[in-house]
C-alpha cells in the first residue's frame, strides 16, 4: 500500500512547487492511474514516492514505512520503472539483473534463475547478454520492468510504462498488471492518456500544475468516456426504457433519450432495429462519442 500525505516537492533553484500538497493512496490490489499533462508533476510524485528524490514536505508511507525516515526498509517493497530508464554503460542486461538482486540478498544461483525468468517474461531472453545501454527505448522499458520485479515487491510505481512499447508489449503489461492486482499488489501507473486507463485502473487521479484536480472511480470513468447514442422518438414510456436498458445506461429527457456506456459496438445497429420492432418511430438518431480525453481536456480547461 502506498500512502501519500500532503506531498510537496520543489526542485533546487526553482520557484514553483512541482508537486504542491497532494494526498492519495494506492490500496493493495488496486491499480491507480495518475493522469496529467506534460509537467503536471506525475514523474515527480512517483520519484519522490519511491525514494529516488527527496520530498520538500509531507510524507510517503510504503506498507506503512516512511520512505524518508526508513528508506532501506521501505525500498524493499518497491518496484520502480522510470520514465526514461538508463543503465550503466557497457553492462550486460543479465549482469545488471544480478547486480540488482544483490541488494535483496538473493542467493546468486536463485538470482540467476529469477533474472532469466523475468527477462523471458518481458521478452528480452535473447538480449540478456547484450549491453543494456545499447537497447532500444522499448527494450529499456522492458528491462526496467524486469529489474523492478526482481525482488517481487508488493508496490509497483510505473512511470509511463506503456510509452514506447509495441502493441504486444502493451498487451503483455496490461495482462501482468491485472495479475499483480489479483496478487494484491498496489500499482501506481502514470500516463498522459486517460483512455488507456479505462478498462484497467480502479481509480484515476488527475493532476494539474502539481495539484490533484479530480479523482474518478472506475465506474464514473466508464460513464464519462464511452460511446453513446442519442435518439428522439415519437413517444417515450417505461417499456422503452426497459427495452433500452439492456444496452447501456439510459437517460431520458423529454423526448430525448441518451444511451451511454454501450459495451458492444455491434449493439448500435441492434438498438434502432429493436426500437422500430417495438413500434416506436425514430425521428432523430445521433452517435455521441465523448471520449475520456475530451472530458479530461475540458476538465483542465476549467482550471484557472
Amino acid at each position: 500500500m502506498i500512502i501519500i500525505e500532503e506531498l510537496k516537492k520543489k526542485y533546487n533553484r526553482q520557484s514553483k512547487f512541482a508537486v504542491d500538497g497532494i494526498s492519495f493512496s494506492v490500496n493493495n490490489g488496486e491499480i491507480l492511474g495518475l493522469v496529467g499533462l506534460n509537467g503536471a508533476g506525475k514523474t515527480t510524485t512517483i520519484n519522490v514516492s519511491c525514494g529516488v528524490i527527496l520530498p520538500s514536505g509531507g510524507r510517503i508511507l510504503i506498507d506503512d514505512v516512511d520512505i524518508v525516515a526508513e528508506k532501506s526498509k521501505a525500498s524493499r517493497e518497491i518496484g520502480w520503472v522510470s520514465e526514461f530508464p538508463n543503465f550503466e554503460p557497457n553492462t550486460k542486461a543479465i549482469h545488471l539483473m544480478l547486480y540488482f538482486s544483490g541488494f535483496y540478498k538473493i542467493p546468486r544461483k536463485e538470482a540467476f534463475i529469477r533474472s532469466m525468468d523475468l527477462l523471458r517474461t518481458v521478452g528480452l531472453e535473447e538480449d540478456a547478454y547484450r549491453p543494456a545501454s545499447a537497447y532500444s527505448q522499448g527494450m529499456k522499458k522492458r528491462l526496467a520492468l524486469a529489474s523492478a520485479l526482481i525482488s517481487g515487491p508488493r508496490n509497483l510505481l510505473l512511470d509511463e510504462i506503456l510509452n514506447g512499447l509495441d502493441p504486444s508489449g502493451i498487451n503483455l503489461i496490461r495482462k501482468l498488471m491485472l495479475e499483480w492486482k489479483k496478487q494484491g499488489k498496489a500499482i501506481l501507473l502514470s500516463t498522459h492518456l486517460l483512455g488507456i486507463l479505462e478498462n484497467l485502473a480502479d481509480r484515476v487521479v488527475i493532476m494539474h500544475h502539481g495539484k490533484i484536480i479530480k479523482t474518478l472511480a472506475n465506474e464514473e470513468m466508464k460513464s464519462l468516456g464511452s460511446t453513446g447514442i442519442r435518439i428522439r422518438v415519437d413517444h417515450v414510456d417505461k417499456s422503452l426504457e426497459v427495452i433500452l436498458s439492456k444496452y447501456g445506461n439510459v437517460r431520458i429527457d423529454g423526448q430525448n433519450v441518451t444511451i451511454t456506456n454501450i459495451s458492444d459496438e455491434q449493439d448500435m445497429e441492434n438498438i434502432s432495429s429493436d426500437i422500430s420492432a417495438n413500434g416506436y418511430r425514430i425521428s432523430h438518431l445521433d452517435l455521441e462519442k465523448t471520449s475520456l480525453e475530451d472530458y479530461f481536456l475540458n476538465l483542465i480547461g476549467e482550471v484557472p
Binding site: 526498509k73 525500498s75 518497491i78 520502480w80 538508463n86 543503465f87 550503466e88 540488482f100 541488494f103 529489474s147
Partner: peptide, 10 residues
C-alpha cells in the same frame, strides 16, 4: 543511472 541503485533497499 544512479537512481536505479538508489531505489534499492539502501
Amino acid at each position: 543511472v544512479l537512481s536505479t541503485v538508489i531505489v534499492r533497499p539502501i
